[in-house]
Design a protein around this nucleic acid. Sequence first.
DNA 1: TTCTCTGCAAACGCTTTGCACGGAT
DNA 2: ATCCGTGCAAAGCGTTTGCAGAGAA
Lengths: 143, 143
Amino acid sequence: MSGRERWALVLQQHQIKPSYPRLRIYTYLVMSRTHPTADEIYMALIHDMPTLSKMTVYNTLKILVEKGLARLISIEEHEARYDANISLHGHFKCTVCDRVYDFPISEHNVQVQGLDGFQITERDLFLRGICPECTQSSTAATP
Amino acid sequence: MSGRERWALVLQQHQIKPSYPRLRIYTYLVMSRTHPTADEIYMALIHDMPTLSKMTVYNTLKILVEKGLARLISIEEHEARYDANISLHGHFKCTVCDRVYDFPISEHNVQVQGLDGFQITERDLFLRGICPECTQSSTAATP
DNA sequence: TTCTCTGCAAACGCTTTGCACGGAT
DNA sequence: ATCCGTGCAAAGCGTTTGCAGAGAA
């Protein structure tokens, strides 16, 4: 089974009709490790699919989130990023280069007191700061 | 010392000129426990201050965040919420009533592995789900 | 006077809405 | 023939920008 077929099956299993645009968008999201925005996905696919509309990207991403195949990362307001990795993990955003990194977390990171009676459906641990690469280039630039 | 004077002093200590609009905005943010948006702050103050502009609210909030007197909560994209409580704590957002609750967290909640070399400046633990109040009303409505 | 703050108006960018075409069943 | 997905155009909303007038030092 090819990669494309495999993801088509995943879509079907989640009650999403695997149309060509949807399949391409989902496959791109799965492959990419950069937590792309809707616009970045659109820009990456428009070369291959000249008729693709940004609308379809928005629609598809919305469906993927609803069906639990993707997560919406709102680590920074005004930019909605998406992640097809739906397992428990944290996100670090570099405030210099704007890249978003994954890092492993465990249950005890998100185990909290004082929320008795609250039904928790989503957990996000967001860190912000400067990544090693940007730290290095800034110290190098300041001799 | 009145409450107003006290917050004026805090502003001064953070190199923010305590103009009347700034003082009112900051005082409102400190008193409110609802993590208001810029628009909510504007709506709350416009009755008392008919000449207040939304611009001034945006400007003031930006300065407060820069100077470390407030935190920007991006628990939900497309709405920027602000919190004058800058101590370590988590946020829970009810997806039904949209309220944002505080809850206590400790250092071990945000202690993570795999980020050696990363300079961390901000930590956010966001939970989403349904609050007790909304859970109760929804079960009551489903007999 | 000089500098900063305020606040109007307009622009901006991302996202949503309304609707019509087209392809699949 | 019907239904659903696609995608154009336009509107919507929160936020930012440019600038001018007012006020404090």
